[in-house]
Amino acid sequence: MASQGTKRSYEQMETDGERQNATEIRASVGKMIDGIGRFYIQMCTELKLSDYEGRLIQNSLTIERMVLSAFDERRNKYLEEHPSAGKDPKKTGGPIYKRVDRKWMRELVLYDKEEIRRIWRQANNGDDATAGLTHMMIWHSNLNDTTYQRTRALVRTGMDPRMCSLMQGSTLPRRSGAAGAAVKGVGTMVMELIRMIKRGINDRNFWRGENGRKTRSAYERMCNILKGKFQTAAQRAMMDQVRESRNPGNAEIEDLIFLARSALILRGSVAHKSCLPACVYGPAVASGYDFEKEGYSLVGIDPFKLLQNSQVYSLIRPNENPAHKSQLVWMACNSAAFEDLRVLSFIRGTKVSPRGKLSTRGVQIASNENMDAMESSTLELRSRYWAIRTRSGGNTNQQRASAGQISVQPAFSVQRNLPFDKPTIMAAFTGNTEGRTSDMRAEIIRMMEGAKPEEMSFQGRGVFELSDERAANPIVPSFDMSNEGSYFFGDNAEEYDN
């Protein structure tokens, strides 16, 4: 993207840094990872977990959730003011799984939030270390993106479920800051804005008074975040219109849905970061690795190297396929839920299948599930090659597409044709070009129609051997075009429920 120079890199967003050079960025990201790792080690000690239990991804998720809940100030305040039966607002906890007599047992633990905050700050040299908290939120978000298709949420806001490739980060909490905003897809931002506008339509006082002023500035800020994701002048001009509207209503909703559809071809720039579970960072720190000293990046080879040398386990339900569970977590670790499966298959070195073909449910185990038949197995999170994460949407291309997802959002900077089903997408653009945004709409449609099938995206960008740390010898991959490109292809993934 041309304006790259004016933006802070995501590592800076990730670490609240002012302008830093590459070495400083690597050190501050490393410091953040160190903090998460030290916190995780301490929690495993508190909970008396064995090494194996500490490497269980379900335990990692519970521990991450506990610290996120302990620092969720708004919710904590709300819980104190609106006490609900049987919930102690000062405590947080969740299921911890232990191996007892050759069987997995679930144990519900409860801790004072104050105590968890103390352990977290102690692991982070006394700081609140917001960057580390956001990092864990993005890992949870990436896992949700890989596990669930947001059909219901899309339909509720009037969008087409086939636009799911635009929904990265749709389950990120509001408090995820600049680093969170960077990884949100165009569809996620559109959905947040539509929800806001709908509230304004239904509630006369939404934009009024002292609160209304705050609401208005939040609305304009979200519009600017979305505008910054678009790469064409016409899309940005249309966002200006939406932002400046005196009284946002149905016309703005129409414009936003139009823009979301246009992003299936004229893709937005959305950041991709490899955020790993805390149970990967903990053992690495415990083994003596100093992330701050060595430096770390979320968008280069580092996460690949770390996963190459990590042992992570997962509980497996009786009829689940461990290899499929591994694929789910591998995609989440690489922030690749909406990437082209052919690119992923090449990088991973084994075939990556669409969601609907995987015999696996989510990673988390519900409290009512029976533990008797639970097994555990090693997650295979290694890769054959590594590639640089991208934040450009890439230019655009036609490809055989599917009944489910009709476009992709690249996660890796790797040369390819970008699949999208042009006739299906263009069919949504018939007729409606009147109104105050008509010239911009016409211009956007013209650009979409001009998108050429034979153009290559990320020209000359390749993948790298894991021994090639400096990215000196790019390998331009070859793809098996007979395979499906979309992950949520004609899909039956479970729906995400809060």
Rank of each mutant, 00 (worst) to 15 (best):
V463C: 14
R74G: 03
R117N: 03
R441F: 05
I347M: 12
M13G: 06
R99S: 04
E449I: 02
V408Q: 08
Q20D: 00
N125D: 08
L315Q: 06
A182I: 02
N432P: 13
A271Y: 10
K325I: 02
R152E: 09
R267Q: 10
E220F: 09
E81S: 12
R121W: 11
G288W: 04
R118P: 08
C279F: 05
E80D: 12
N368F: 06
E449C: 06
D160R: 03
M222W: 08
R261Q: 13
E220R: 09
A263E: 01
R19V: 08
L61M: 05
F338K: 00
L379W: 02
P354A: 15
K357P: 03
S287F: 06
S353H: 03
S141D: 10
R355M: 06
Q241T: 04
S345C: 10
G362L: 03
R348T: 12
R441I: 10
M191F: 07
V463Q: 00
Y78G: 06
D497M: 13
A337L: 06
V414Q: 06
M167R: 06
A251S: 04
D16F: 04
S287D: 07
S402E: 09
D468W: 00
G282W: 07
S392T: 08
S28K: 12
R461M: 06
D88C: 15
E469K: 13
A237F: 01
V270L: 12
E454C: 15
F420R: 01
G288V: 04
I388Y: 08
I301Q: 08
R102T: 04
R436V: 04
N473Q: 15
I445S: 09
E73D: 12
Y52V: 10
K90C: 04
K452Q: 13
A123K: 01
C164T: 04
N205S: 12
E53S: 13
M136N: 03
T45F: 05
A178Y: 13
L307Y: 01
G37C: 11
F429D: 01
R8H: 00
Y219L: 14
N483Y: 10
G177S: 07
A493G: 10
I406C: 11
S326M: 10
M105P: 10
A403S: 14
R8E: 01
D468V: 03
L61I: 12
P354H: 06
G349C: 07
E469L: 12
I25H: 01
L172D: 00
G132A: 11
V270A: 13
P89V: 15
I425V: 15
Q327S: 07
M447L: 13
R391D: 05
K77R: 15
M238I: 13
G209H: 07
L226F: 12
D203G: 03
S457Y: 00
I365N: 08
A131R: 00
H272P: 03
Y385Q: 05
Y487D: 07
D340H: 14
V285E: 08
S377G: 10
Q311V: 07
T378M: 11
D340Q: 03
Q364I: 10
L61A: 07
Q398N: 03
Q241M: 08
C275K: 05
C275G: 12
A428G: 05
L358E: 09
N202P: 03
G185A: 12
A493T: 15
Q20W: 01
S60W: 03
E210I: 00
D340N: 14
S297H: 06
M426K: 02
R162M: 05
V312P: 01
R355T: 10
Y40L: 04
G362V: 01
V352Y: 13
E14L: 03
G94H: 08
G177Q: 04
D372C: 10
Q409I: 13
I138C: 05
S345N: 12
G295W: 12
L341M: 11
K305V: 05
M189F: 02
F412T: 00
R150W: 11
Y10C: 03
G187T: 06
R150H: 08
G126I: 02
T157A: 14
R75G: 07
I347P: 02
P89F: 13
R102A: 05
L61R: 02
A442M: 14
R355P: 08
Y281M: 07
L79N: 09
P354N: 13
W120I: 09
P161F: 01
A182S: 11
I445L: 11
F464I: 00
R208H: 04
S353L: 13
T232P: 09
I225D: 07
T396M: 02
G356D: 10
V109W: 02
D16Y: 07
G200Y: 11
E292P: 15
K103F: 01
R118K: 14
S314G: 14
D160G: 06
N321I: 09
M137K: 14
L298R: 12
Y219R: 04
K77S: 13
G86T: 10
E292Y: 05
G185S: 05
Q398P: 00
V270T: 12
A233H: 11
N319Y: 00
D468H: 03
E380I: 04
E465D: 03
G185P: 05
I388P: 06
D255V: 02
M159W: 04
Y313G: 11
Y97G: 11
Y385E: 02
G180Y: 05
V186W: 00
Y281W: 13
E495Y: 02
P453K: 12
V67F: 09
M222G: 14
A70W: 04
K90M: 13
W120K: 10
C275H: 05
V299F: 01
G5Y: 03
A22D: 10
Y496V: 13
R26T: 05
P474N: 01
R65P: 11
K77M: 14
E465I: 00
I41K: 00
A278F: 11
F206T: 01
I225P: 04
S314Y: 11
R221C: 06
I33H: 00
G295V: 06
Q311R: 15
L381D: 08
G185Q: 11
G404D: 10
E192K: 10
M448N: 06
Q122K: 04
E294K: 12
M447Q: 14
T130D: 03
P322M: 13
R221H: 08
P277Q: 13
S310Q: 12
C279Q: 10
R470N: 01
K87Q: 06
R152P: 07
G209Y: 14
V299N: 15
C44D: 01
D290M: 14
I36D: 08
V343F: 02
E495K: 14
I444A: 10
D112H: 11
S165Y: 03
A233Y: 00
R199I: 06
S314R: 05
R348M: 07
G485K: 05
S141V: 11
A153K: 04
F206S: 10
G5R: 15
Q311S: 14
L47G: 13
M196T: 12
L108H: 11
A493R: 15
W330I: 11
G17H: 02
A332T: 14
L259T: 04
S141M: 06
I36P: 01
I57Y: 03
G300I: 08
T147Y: 06
V285K: 05
R391A: 02
G185C: 07
M196N: 08
N205V: 12
T23A: 13
R162W: 10
V299W: 13
L264S: 03
Q231M: 13
Q58E: 12
L466K: 00
S217R: 02
A278W: 07
M136A: 12
S377M: 15
P453N: 15
E469F: 00
P419M: 13
I475V: 12
I41S: 15
Q398D: 01
A284Y: 15
N309S: 13
A2C: 01
E114T: 07
I116C: 15
G435S: 09
V343R: 02
R400Q: 04
A181W: 05
G132P: 06
E115V: 02
G462W: 01
K227V: 10
D112A: 09
C164K: 08
R19E: 03
S413I: 05
R355E: 11
A2D: 01
M137Q: 08
A493W: 07
D497I: 12
E375N: 14
A233T: 15
G228V: 09
I444E: 03
R65Y: 02
A85L: 09
A332G: 12
M167W: 10
R261L: 04
E294T: 11
L68V: 03
V100Y: 10
Y496G: 13
R102M: 10
Y296L: 04
R65C: 05
M447F: 15
G394T: 00
N483M: 15
E465T: 00
S274E: 02
T15M: 03
E434P: 12
S367A: 14
Q364H: 10
Q149I: 10
V408Y: 08
D203C: 09
E380V: 02
R195Y: 08
Y10V: 14
N250I: 08
A472Y: 13
G268M: 03
F206Q: 13
S367N: 15
T396C: 10
F71Q: 11
G17S: 07
M191V: 09
G349K: 06
E375A: 02
M163D: 01
Y97W: 05
S176V: 07
S170K: 06
R236Y: 01
S9H: 00
Q12Y: 00
